[in-house]
Write a protein that binds this DNA or RNA. Structure first.
Lengths: 227, 227
DNA sequence: AATAAAGTTTAGACTAACCTAAACTTTATA
DNA sequence: TATAAAGTTTAGGTTAGTCTAAACTTTATT
């Protein structure tokens, strides 16, 4: 399906999709250029082209809004990206900070059959290694209701369900501290002067984390398992 | 490593490598153009470019010969291709006629670390699903000494070790007849008038195959297993 | 050995994706 | 509300890879 678009078009669509999650659902030339590490002139050219191809509506000087087709295409690329990320961590045992760059290349492999097989092989997963939902084949996303660790209650058991910041450095730092996906975690102390936290990981290791970090850790309440 | 070359350059290098396996080790403009489904003019342009980049020596009107660097680069692309093919059959359970096109895209994913992990995950395989040797990380190929089934002795047990023709139709035909990699096979009759053969597959099923087909099936002698 | 045929290269054009610099809109500020 | 600043678009150029058509070499044929 996304074979009808060049790699670059696909990358722009993905970036526009990610930038659109604000209130007005619009991506602006400058932020798009910076997301794509290119110049506003190039971004403007591409927006015009994607408009002509019927993937978004573009009003000069007013930014771009993806339409149904554009959004569907973006979601199918995101699906590919996240499935490959999961494959890389689950099968080839890469860490969560290592997979993004490789998935950026793998997502452009066009075979739908390959993707279907991969999806099946991974048992139709709903989340990628960073806790981001994997769109299904129709572009539907699983609703999530994760909380930021910085706002989670003290002494309640939580599970790390994802992150809201994806930089390699941040992910490496979490990995190093033992704060990995699906580990259980409990806030044992809040330091009010700087909002930093002492947390207990898997009931064993205790670590101290800044508000900056806690803010970007997404958790869900741990339901005690029944034997 | 092959990140320094465009996908197109990589594809040309691979094609030149495959065309070079004749007596004079040279690829000619016309055959290269036809292998790349392009015009002689385009192939000529690319040969000149690869010469300038120091991957081959080119004498106008006399064709192109890969040098050490060109050959090494070609082998590293072939390594990627064949490892991915094996992954697709072994892990995602694709049939041998389905994997080539997908591997053509996957081979351009540039991460060396990914390739290393894949190699390890597949237990450092020596052969791809068509029996072609997978170059090692240094570009060395396992020596093979397979025989064409058309020249194999009657009533001796053989194992299908590969094919010398890779078209989808041919591979599908073999699959359909039960002639798959590693199955055991015995010639039970030669029909001298058309050189066709009756063969027994896995000691059970008997099939009749033309000389055309037998010629392109590669076999090795089966060593009886000791209990 | 002359010439026709086959094969190869060069010339010149096209598209996608990029760039810089200049022109133009919008927004913010005095 | 005029003007400066910020942001966006257009104009014109570049590179990689492609094409067709013309020019040129090599090989084959008489």
């Amino acid at each position: 399906m996304p074979n009808e678009f060049t790699h670059t078009e696909q990358n722009y669509l993905k970036a526009i999709y990610h930038l659109s999650n604000s209130e007005d659902n619009t991506a602006y030339t400058q932020e798009l250029a910076s997301a794509m590490s290119t110049t506003p002139a190039s971004a403007s050219d591409m927006i015009k082209k994607l408009d002509e191809k019927g993937l978004l509506t573009y009003v000069p000087y007013r930014g771009a809004k993806l339409n149904k087709k554009g959004e569907k295409t973006a979601l199918s690329i995101i699906r590919r990206h996240r499935l490959w990320e999961l494959f890389l961590t689950e099968v080839l045992k890469f860490k969560w900070d290592e997979v993004h760059a490789m998935a950026e290349e793998l997502e452009h492999v066009s075979s739908d059959l390959l993707l279907q097989r991969m999806d099946k092989f991974l048992s139709h997963p709903k989340f990628d290694p960073h806790g981001d939902p994997i769109p299904d084949a129709n572009g539907r996303l699983t609703e999530t209701n994760f909380n930021s660790l910085s706002e989670f209650a003290k002494n309640k058991m939580a599970i790390i369900a994802g992150v809201s910041q994806h930089s390699v450095d941040f992910l490496k730092y979490l990995e190093h501290s033992g704060l990995v996906l699906n580990c259980s975690i409990k806030i044992i102390r809040r330091h009010s002067f700087d909002k930093s936290l002492d947390v207990l990981i898997n009931g064993k290791k205790s670590v101290h984390i800044s508000h900056q970090v806690a803010k970007h850790i997404l958790v869900k309440l741990k339901i005690a398992d029944k034997p």
